[in-house]
């Protein structure tokens, strides 16, 4: 470990701890997942960056949205995201979650993911190479240091808006809201 980092550790040990131990949800949401097995095995070895996949969202703090998001998957993504404990970070792969990418006219893929859940960072490329994934993650470290990776805070703050967007897409949702919705609405009005 770098000696300069000791002061950082002492200042905010919790932040440093979760920053260097990203537990990724095991959820293959799209085609970018094909580069995750090479990244976590011997050749690229994601564990040197502290990235390790875990089985359940209850133990995870990093969610990799690997590529395009179909409407059926988005429901599963929202549920998985809401199950993750805070602090949690989301990184999306490729251009498809930004604006639809090459599926801009597909009737079954949503065009921008950050209308439904907050996204902390995007990695360019189709597929992003393992190096790009690591660059994305190291950049996320910087954002965490600067308190800019605040997706989960935004989700809590603006939950009423996120929920409204989700309901506009799906109609009535079949699970209860994560945070109280009515109170917030009254406060805003």
């Amino acid at each position: 470990m770098d000696r300069n980092q000791i002061s950082k550790w002492l200042k905010n040990p919790g932040k440093m701890a979760h920053k260097y131990s990203f537990h990724v949800v095991y959820f293959c949401t799209g085609c970018g997942i094909i580069e995750i097995p090479p990244s976590i095995t011997t050749r690229w070895d994601a564990e040197r960056f502290g990235i390790i996949p875990v089985a359940t969202p209850r133990q995870a703090n990093l969610f990799l949205i690997t590529g395009y998001v179909s409407t059926k998957t988005l429901k599963a993504i929202i549920r998985t995201y809401e199950q993750m404990p805070e602090p949690k970070y989301t990184v999306a792969f490729g251009s498809c979650p930004i604006n639809g990418g090459m599926y801009y006219d597909s009737y079954n893929t949503i065009t921008s993911l950050d209308k439904y859940i907050p996204v902390d960072g995007y990695i360019a490329g189709c597929m992003p190479r393992p190096e790009a994934v690591f660059i994305g993650v190291t950049h996320l470290w910087k954002l965490i240091d600067m308190d800019k990776a605040d997706g989960y805070k935004r989700y809590r703050e603006d939950y009423v808006h996120y929920r409204a967007n989700q309901e506009q897409l799906y109609g009535q949702m079949d699970w209860p809201p994560l945070f109280p919705v009515e109170k917030k609405e009254q406060a805003n009005l």
Binding site: G30, K72, D105, S106, N108, T109
Partner: peptide, 23 residues
């Protein structure tokens, strides 16, 4: 199934013969 459905066969009807290779 259907979590990865993008409607490729429909999208390919809207692109030219060569444009379909990336799809």
């Amino acid at each position: 199934p259907g979590y990865l459905h993008r409607g490729f066969e429909k999208l390919m009807e809207q692109r030219t013969w060569m444009q379909n290779f990336p799809l």
